[in-house]
Design a protein around this nucleic acid. Structure first.
Lengths: 169, 169
DNA sequence: GCTAAATTAATGTATATACAACTATTGTAT
DNA sequence: ATACAATAGTTGTATATACATTAATTTAGC
């Protein structure tokens, strides 16, 4: 997270017992129960995913957070979004959209215009250069998606179902 | 989360189609397939978990990363650990253990001693105050664990299995 | 023994994040 | 109309992160 994760991952190492995969990866570990292990596993895996992402995006000189903003903007293109729209879609409400947007503007990947109807708000939209950049990244995304296919489609569905249920409390 | 999350989470918003829970939570979203959705879901859920964690730990004036280090040290207590031992258990290899440890030392939660046998290395161990702090946090952890139990034990097992498999590529 | 390589940790620096405080503009109540 | 509240973004600041570089000590080769 932040998840990112690099997320921001936390782990718990309390014992020398070695069990399955997760325990091995973070060295001698024991969890209170499957639920706690699940929470750590989600955060650990998120960090793993985020790192893969970050390194492939690095070649294009953008961070995962910046990539996120660009994709959000492409999603509404050609309609612009105001800053608050971007923030609420970013999930990490803490992350500072103002500064993220400014970074992308400096790179010419998006443009900002004061909205005439409501001068408090700013209309933000992706530029041609931004679209081109995303297209180049998309073209490379194949191998990244292949990595995810170490699980079956049925397992992916099950994973999504369980995660949605976990958050529904 | 940011983690996490605050994790550090990235999302993809490209459409106005509304489907299940994850799509709703990050507003009008459509994914290429279940695999991509799974990756985003893991990172999003990690951020959600990290934020819950961060806010409960804030009352004790420590961050999730610092909490992680303390638990690692408790795990080996009373044997001290060197810095590299802590780093390799932290997963986020980027995070700077030197400075995290220094923060905790300033709070009196751990102590550092130059190792006599090998003066390059530093023996780090949790203090009584550190143990007491962890104990107080443990006492409050019940409700946090309860939150995780919105899924069944079987689902938690399945979640762990799928995540381990996902990373095994 | 002396030099080169490896190990262990600390530091520098640019960027990012968390969170509070602030500015500007618009909406609402009297 | 004026004052007060709500909305939309920006800025300040302390801390954290990423990553490269440096420093100190130990090990190994010759």
């Amino acid at each position: 997270m932040n998840f990112l994760m690099d997320i921001v991952v936390y782990t718990i190492i309390e014992c020398t017992f070695i069990g399955m995969s997760l325990e091995k990866e973070i060295k001698q570990e024991k969890f209170q129960n499957e639920f706690e292990k699940g929470a750590v596993n989600v955060m650990f895996t998120a960090g793993w995913l985020y790192n893969m992402n970050a390194s492939r995006l690095k070649l294009h000189a953008i961070t995962p957070e910046q990539y996120n903003v660009l994709r959000i903007l492409r999603g509404s293109h050609p309609r612009p979004l105001m800053l608050a729209d971007i923030t609420c879609r970013m999930i990490d409400k803490n992350s500072n959209a103002t500064r993220l947007v400014e970074k992308l503007r400096q790179k010419g990947l998006l443009k900002r215009e004061i909205c005439e109807n409501n001068r408090r708000q700013v209309d933000i939209s992706i530029t041609e250069k931004g679209l081109t950049t995303l297209k180049r990244i998309d073209a490379e995304a194949e191998s990244w998606l292949e990595t995810l296919k170490s699980i079956t489609k049925a397992e992916a569905l099950e994973l999504n179902r369980i995660l949605d249920k976990l958050r529904s409390s």
